[in-house]
């Protein structure tokens, strides 16, 4: 929330960084999901992944 991203003088809200970070974590999680055959445990994997992404963003916002 405090530290802006500085791209050549253009300052970007840290929320963008959180969104990108959450995306990276989700990519990692997907690799794990593929290994453990995640779709066995949930009814709609894409929907669950979308929900997980929102949770991850919120977690990053809370922690940093």
């Amino acid at each position: 929330m405090r530290h802006d991203l500085d791209l050549g003088g253009i300052l970007i809200s840290p929320f963008v960084a959180y969104a990108a970070g959450a995306l990276l974590i989700l990519v990692g999680l997907r690799a794990i999901f593929a290994r453990i055959r995640f779709s066995r445990y949930v009814a709609n994997p894409p929907l669950v992944e979308a929900g997980l992404y929102i949770c991850l963003v919120a977690l990053l916002v809370v922690l940093f």
Partner: peptide, 13 residues
């Protein structure tokens, strides 16, 4: 499980 994750997502949002 799906519903739970979605509920968490709604609360997080």
């Amino acid at each position: 499980a799906t519903g739970l994750v979605l509920a968490c997502a709604a609360a997080a949002a």
